[in-house]
Design a protein around this nucleic acid. Sequence first.
RNA 1: GUCGGCGUGGCGGAAUGGCAGACGCGCCAGCCUUAGGAGCUGGUGUCCCCUGGACGUGGAGGUUCGAAUCCUCUCGCCGACACCA
Length: 813
Amino acid sequence: MSPSRHSGYAPQDIEPKWQKVWAERGVMKAADDSLKPKFYNLVMFPYPSGPLHMGHMRNYVIGDVLSRFKRMQGFEVLNPMGWDAFGLPAENDAIKRGGGVHPEDWTRGNIAIAKQQLGIMGVLYDWDREVTTCDPAYYRWTQELFLLMHERGLAHRMMSPVNWCPVDKTVLANEQVINGRCWRHPEVEVEKRDLEQWFLRITEYADRLLDDLKLLDHWPERVRLMQANWIGRSQGVEVEFPIDGHPGESMRIYTTRPDTLFGVTFMVLAPEHPLVEKLAVQSRRDVVRQVVEASRREREIDRMSSEVKRLGAPTGAFAVNPLNGEKVPIWVGDYVLITYGTGAIMAVPGHDQRDFDFARQFGLPIREVIAPPSGPQRDLYKAYIGAGVVVNSGPFDGIDSKTGAERIADFIEQKRIGKRSVKYRLRDWLISRQRYWGCPIPVVHCEVDGIVAVPREDLPVLLPREYRPLADNAEFWRAKCPKCGRDARRETDTMDTFIDSSWYFLRYTSAHDKTQPFDPELANHWMPVDQYTGGIEHAILHLLYARFFQKVLLDAGRVDATEPFARLFTQGMIKRGGAVMSKSKGNGVAPDDLVERDGADAARIYELFIGPPDEDAEWSDAAIAGPVRFLQHVWRLVESPDSFEVTGSDVSTTLLRRRVHQAIRKVTEDYESFHFNTAVAALMELANTLQKFLQGGGQRDEDWQFAVRMLVLLMNPMAPHAGEELWSRIGGTGLAADAAWPEFDSAAAAEMDVTLVVQVAGKVRDRLTVPVGLSEEKALAMALASERVGAAFDGRKPSKVVYVPDRLINLVP
RNA sequence: GUCGGCGUGGCGGAAUGGCAGACGCGCCAGCCUUAGGAGCUGGUGUCCCCUGGACGUGGAGGUUCGAAUCCUCUCGCCGACACCA
């Protein structure tokens, strides 16, 4: 059934019409040379994995509302769109279908569908700037940026343990490892193999990535916190422990608690630590090797439980505590990570829970060196990890642990047995993927010259059309060394797709540049992105990588902005049936069906009205009726105001004017602050006021015309098709999309009378209608004159009066 | 375990120190109507001695003239990270 039957509102008729007009007139084309202030509005580009559902669409609707709003406010808006088109799902899907579909065809097909879906939702972009990361015209510049990283010493090859499926004989991405098993062969455990991999040295930027978070005061606090935790800077001390009986050999450890150095009762090496083999005494070698092997396998299996039994064995060697000369045993233990700090620790079971558990399990001694302020009694089941007074620590006894940590660190540096040091949990970024559907890494391996970059003029290194691993494609990997001309082997790894998305926002600023990744002048004109909108799932990786790229490009003199995204908004997910809407769960709502039944405008408004956009929301199939009725209501108000019966109401012309100006103020503020749900509510209220005005027999004079015009313009960013149609029907000049945003008149918006709440001891006793700005004396007199209040005081004076003008008066007896 | 977020009618939510429940969904009653899943009017937190009043924002305490809002503790749900020395 079409809603048109009763209100005349027929979205199916008007929506395609205006979509065509917007496209023909290039409404969302951004001019590089405009005199208007620029506004770069960016929505995270999608991975085209299939048709979009209303969960995805929320993001694009929010972005579109903002673009349209900012345009009407007089900004030159850059609002581009593209496709994060490389990646595993394309290959997985091809595999699922027996290899029948080429990843590229699958991807291009999905792009075409998604693009069409955005179109029918009335979401506009400057499609002239469209980028697709799997286009050679794009990835050629991804390769160029890789070369830039390589030249700057930021891209390097290094041995690294990777996940290896023994059946497929291939490396797996982390996402393809499920509970330590291959996603396609759950019967076999994944192995760790050491392979040479490409890394980007993001750790060199750890400090700046952390410190510059302070500049991002328009980012959500929690995203900044997540990034700070991910980078994980800690300050501590590295200390050398000489090894007993191995002159010249020492064990370097890192600790954030130098105040506990006198509490060391043993040392632990990570199983992968090179000293393990060297130090293990003959009689211990087999046991130690067993632990190393077992922990190697253990690593792969989900270790969610904190009650895991530790793996460990003594090496038989001893280290000497450089502070007190004590000999302590060196163990190997699976709880020490080779990837953090020095891969070796001093164990202080008295004041570290993990060391405590290990000591308990293996019967190692525990010594107290920090006395808790609460007294000397110690919990036998856990370590005391708090601050206190240093004890059993020779010359440092008696000082508080915080000062003690500094004194001992000073002492260590004076004696040259160690130094203060900063560590990060952030690792270098492993970007190699042994996968077909990705951007080829543009280097060649030559037996004589080693790793040689492909010269820029030879870019792009084209991904062959033939779908099979690049390492198996001799036509691809057979190459000549660019330096010496000998036969060489082309790199067959492709890049992590997060690289493609780390610079796409720069490409939009000059999407057709044939000589460079982006034109620095245009990039500097548009950057930074004024508003970036996307899912919270990208709070860490994508946003960190993009910030890293921006800083590298800043250092290379290619961009001026320190940070790429000035303002960030992370929208919540749409759930249905309690689960996040997704293709795999089959609970997605297709925009196509909604558009057909209720129209794009109703679908858009419902998505905005569903709740605060930064929070998750539960989809209701029934609740879209509200937005549908709202649009019909507005249509009827504008197109057939005579159809409202005059039944009497008290909405005067003055009140109508006032409500209109209040709505302008409210809706403008709500758009600015992303409170779209309350913006919709404000427009619904305005429509209800217009109806009351008609029912009160209000004349359709200038004030009425003004009210209608404002209603249409205010709703236009959210319901642009109905907005355009009504705008043209009421004789608006040009497109509503190009109309100037309404300004409110604060005098016209001001109320004459307000409701003053009268409280006695904080309880509401009466409500008085009083003029704005009433004096306290008059308010008090009126309050006491009130029957229900006067009775409570019976002629006595209140002991206290709290008066909040235009709001309330509270009388305390 | 660590960090963070959220708990308000039957439902989505509004109110960020000042009238709790705006706006909408659903529901109830009525009107109109050859019947539409339309439109219009009124109602819709709980309870009571019902022109009024008491209680009410997960729970317990606190600060304040006044708390959904701030503080402490606690319970529940969700998310991120997870042996980071």
